[in-house]
């Protein structure tokens, strides 16, 4: 079968039907994502996995650009924590960014992303570190005092229990009051993926309506 053949040839490849059943994607869309995955995973080392340098190259057109948030996203996509992103991990992680994915999943992903040291909390120092990282990558010049006041003000708004850190419950309430902070968690491209990466035209003999 077509899928078994691919699985043999490409380590980490997973059956699109399985991936479609676990995500908001159709089988055709998973096939199209495989086209994108192939491009990304062969840009430096053609081994069927996305390495961090390949991820950086895809995001920034620069394989050695260091970026705190790209690192965090890569680490969260790398569900098995083996240093590379496999096809199944790529599809499952991207599915959270689908316009139809549950908001709960988007909130959870963003929380993990901002919980830099994976303590289960977003701490004052972590928030400060992230704001500083953004300032370093932009041309904005904001004084330390202003940075501190933005961070203090945000912590005061989000940290309802007043213990100096934001837990998941507080995060949910904060996001509910400020929904725009999840804007990066939705990728409109994922609704038209088969147009951008039309592998289904060649590969899929199955109509999504038949599944």
């Amino acid at each position: 079968c077509f899928c078994l053949k691919k699985a043999k040839q490409h380590p980490g490849y997973e059956d699109p039907t399985t991936l479609a059943s676990e995500t908001p994607f159709t089988v055709n869309e998973v096939e199209a994502l495989y086209d994108l995955f192939k491009k990304l995973s062969s840009s430096i080392i053609d081994d069927g996995f996305i390495h961090k340098e390949e991820f950086q190259l895809a995001l920034f057109r620069n394989r050695s650009k260091q970026n705190l948030f790209a690192d965090r996203v890569f680490d969260l996509f790398d569900i098995k924590r083996n240093g590379v992103i496999e096809f199944g991990e790529f599809v499952r992680s991207l599915s959270i960014f689908h316009p139809n994915a549950p908001n709960e999943d988007k909130m959870e992903f963003a929380f993990k992303l901002y919980d830099l040291r994976q303590t289960g909390y977003i701490e004052h120092e972590e928030l400060r570190e992230m704001v500083s990282a953004i300032l370093n990558e932009s041309d904005l010049e904001i004084s330390e005092d202003v940075v501190e006041s933005i961070v203090d003000k945000t912590m005061a708004e989000a940290d309802l229990k007043g213990d100096g850190k934001i837990d998941k419950e507080e995060w949910k309430e904060f996001v509910a009051r400020n929904p725009s902070i999840l804007r990066n968690m939705t990728l409109p491209y994922l609704k038209q993926i088969t147009l951008a990466f039309p592998s289904f035209v060649l590969n899929s003999e199955v109509q999504d309506s038949d599944i």
């Binding site: 920034f60 790209a70 996203v73 992303l113 953004i134 904005l140 400020n178």
Partner: peptide, 25 residues
């Protein structure tokens, strides 16, 4: 001025803007 630090991060972060994965290919 930015309303809160998370708003600032999500608006400004290039590393957390995955649309580039599609646009740059």
């Amino acid at each position: 001025a930015f309303f809160n630090a998370f708003e600032f991060i999500s608006s400004m972060s290039s590393g957390f803007d995955l649309s580039s994965l599609f646009e740059n290919q």
